[in-house]
Simulated assay, not measured.
Amino acid sequence: MLSGQDDDAWARHTHPLSVWTRIGLGLPVLILAGWSRVWIGPWWLLAMAAAVLFLWLNPRMTPVPRSTDNWGARAVLGERRWVRTRRSDLPPWHRTVPLVLALGSACGHVAVLYGVVVLDPYWTALGYATGMLCKLWYLDRMVWLDRDMAQNPDA
């Protein structure tokens, strides 16, 4: 979720480069920064700060795209609708599943955090796979939500 983003950051984040670098690099860069404490000692804090800075800069560093007619942009637009719309104003079929998927993604991220803290590659990989599966499924639901609400704003 991009909470706290202004309108310009949301618009820029619909650019495919922003969407796919955030999905593809965001969590792996954080994981690598956490594991780097084994190789670079206390300098891992600098690596972690750089990873967090990347996540903050990511939706701000691309231009507003010429078109939002692609899956990634629709996922971002749907997520924005999800964040800004009261649950009771969402179509009924979009009220529960995204919450369950967000919870699944959060559980995966907790497993990743545990794996990174105790340096366990299995927990790290399991958490990453769980978190990403749920996150991608959630984003696909956001595409569906955006399409449904664009077709019927009163739904």
Rank of each mutant, 00 (worst) to 15 (best):
L2D: 04
L2Q: 01
S3A: 14
S3M: 08
G4V: 04
D6Y: 11
D6L: 12
D8Y: 05
A11K: 06
A11N: 12
A11R: 08
A11V: 05
R12K: 14
R12G: 07
R12A: 02
R12S: 06
H13T: 11
L17C: 04
L17T: 09
L17W: 12
W20S: 00
T21Q: 11
I23W: 03
I23H: 05
I23L: 15
L25S: 04
L25G: 12
L25N: 08
G26R: 06
G26V: 13
L27F: 01
P28Y: 10
P28E: 10
V29D: 00
L30M: 15
A33Y: 02
W35Q: 03
W35S: 02
W35R: 11
S36T: 02
S36F: 02
S36W: 11
R37M: 13
V38W: 08
V38H: 07
W39H: 07
I40W: 13
P42M: 13
W43I: 07
W43F: 15
W43N: 01
L45M: 09
L45F: 09
L46V: 15
L46W: 15
A49M: 04
A50K: 00
A50L: 15
V52N: 07
L53G: 05
F54P: 03
L55V: 04
L55N: 13
L57N: 00
N58R: 02
P59M: 07
R60P: 05
R60E: 10
R60W: 07
M61P: 01
P65H: 10
S67H: 09
T68M: 14
T68S: 04
D69A: 08
D69P: 01
N70V: 02
W71S: 00
W71F: 12
W71P: 01
G72A: 06
G72Y: 01
R74W: 01
V76Y: 01
G78H: 06
G78R: 11
E79N: 13
R81N: 01
R84D: 05
T85P: 03
T85I: 05
D89P: 02
L90C: 10
P91E: 12
W93V: 07
R95N: 10
T96E: 08
V97P: 00
L99S: 06
V100K: 00
V100T: 07
L101N: 14
L103M: 14
A106P: 11
C107K: 03
C107H: 13
C107T: 13
G108V: 06
G115K: 06
G115T: 07
V116L: 10
V117N: 10
V118T: 13
V118E: 09
L119R: 15
L119C: 12
D120C: 02
W123R: 03
T124W: 08
T124E: 00
G127C: 07
T130Y: 00
T130P: 04
M132G: 02
L133D: 04
L133N: 02
K135E: 15
L136I: 08
W137C: 03
L139A: 12
L139R: 09
R141M: 11
M142V: 10
M142G: 12
V143S: 04
W144F: 11
L145F: 14
L145C: 14
D146G: 07
D148G: 03
M149G: 01
Q151E: 15
N152T: 13
P153G: 15
D154I: 05
